[in-house]
Amino acid sequence: MTNASGDFARVRRIVKTDEFSSVFRLRPVQRTAHFVLYARPTDLLHARLGVVAAKRFAPRAVTRNTIKRVTREIFRQSSLINVDCIVRLSKPVNTKAGPSTTAQLKRELRVEILRLFASQKVPVEPVS
């Protein structure tokens, strides 16, 4: 759902443990090199998103926050309705030895996450 103000309201997020669990019980909808997408239809009039970026796969907080920021940005631009989505980081994206974030890492994350949401047959515009 595109939001004119660009915010990411709490009603658009999956925040409770039982909500995460109910979506995780389902089989993954889509996988990429580093991410897994879980989705579940709901009765809500809007889509909700949860992002899981474990410290063991992204040891630096800067990297985890970048993953969440990019995912939320792409989700906001999608026109998903009546679905709960969880994007989970499933493989390491970088190490403590490498840089925490780079323009190249952000581009690669964006491409993978766009691929995840494209599997939902939803038009998502890439942002330059």
Rank of each mutant, 00 (worst) to 15 (best):
L45P: 08
H46W: 01
P28G: 09
P28S: 11
V23D: 00
P28A: 07
L26S: 13
T42R: 05
L37W: 11
T42L: 04
P41F: 00
A33L: 15
A33H: 11
R31F: 05
Q30R: 13
R13I: 07
D43Q: 12
R13P: 04
S22E: 02
F20P: 01
V15H: 08
I14M: 03
D18Q: 06
R25Y: 06
R40P: 08
D43H: 07
D18G: 01
K16H: 08
R25K: 11
H34F: 12
I14C: 04
D43N: 08
E19H: 14
L26V: 12
I14N: 01
I14D: 05
D43M: 02
H46T: 05
R27I: 03
R25C: 05
P41Y: 04
A47S: 10
L44F: 01
L37Y: 15
K16R: 11
A33R: 15
S21A: 15
T42Q: 04
D43P: 02
V36G: 13
R27K: 14
P28W: 05
H46P: 00
S21K: 13
L44R: 11
H46M: 04
V23R: 02
V29N: 12
A39V: 04
S21V: 10
R31M: 03
D43E: 08
P41A: 05
V36W: 15
F24Y: 15
S22M: 02
V36E: 14
L26D: 11
V36D: 13
I14L: 10
F24T: 07
T32Y: 09
S21E: 09
L44T: 08
R40Y: 00
T17Q: 09
D43R: 12
V29H: 13
D18A: 12
V15A: 11
T42W: 07
I14G: 04
P28T: 06
H34Y: 11
